[in-house]
Amino acid sequence: MAAPFIDIDGLRAVRVDKDRRFQLSVPRFRLSSGDRVAIIGPSGSGKSTFVETVACARAPASAVRFLVRGRGQGGEAGAAMDVAEAWARGREDALTRLRSRTFGYVHQAGGLLAFLSVRANIALTQRLSGRSDPGLIEELGAALGIRALFASAPAQLSGGQRQRVAIARALAHRPLVVVADEPTASLDRRNAATVMRLLADAAASAGAALLVATHDEALAAEFGFTIIGMHDDPDHDGGPDGSPGRGDDSVQAVALTPFPAVRGDR
């Protein structure tokens, strides 16, 4: 069995906002080629913190194991990087390169750059990862039905069109993992279903694993996602770094409980 792209044990992430401190615990998490995982939970439950941390965009507070098997400079599968150690040692450039070659990101409202055309937005990930492939941009444009919009500016697009462009951009550099945070939150039900189907199909065609944070469990289930729920952990006693434990109202301790389908791989 191939090694997972993402391999996490005992990860803890802390987020401090204006008026609250928030802690996330991830006992175990694995993501392998072809996996399609949805993180489900209400607003404020820690989905974004989880996604940001797993996607190497936020430093974990601690982790027993946090390995990401990324792509090398030439696009080949590279050796696993110890992400927790990289954060601890301040190897920020290495983490940035890992993100650019290994991950694709789909934002809630597209996250497109207003000053670039649709085509330039899609090509951006190729440019940043150093993997120019104009043919793939054409293929993605045709597959997602946005070929005619290549010369348009993002401001001229509808919400659904923006998400299709974001999906194309997320896949244009052939990432191993596509991460999407509430990709359908700004769309109506019909468009949400269309975008989710396009996202799932495009990621499957590219052989990329898909990790989606969403509050729409029904939609995730409809497209065959493995569901992982976020919930409060009543047994949380505070972390080893001295973070506040039970009884402190400013703390929301959250544990991530893998569903059997995911846990069964371990």
């Binding site: 450039d93 940035t96 390169r97 993100r99 650019s100 070659r101 996250g111 750059l113 207003a114 940043l128």
Partner: peptide, 14 residues
């Protein structure tokens, strides 16, 4: 700021 966040996320070095 948001555009720069996206660029940093997608792999533009600091």
């Amino acid at each position: 700021r948001q555009a720069l966040c996206v660029l940093r996320l997608h792999g533009l070095l600091r």
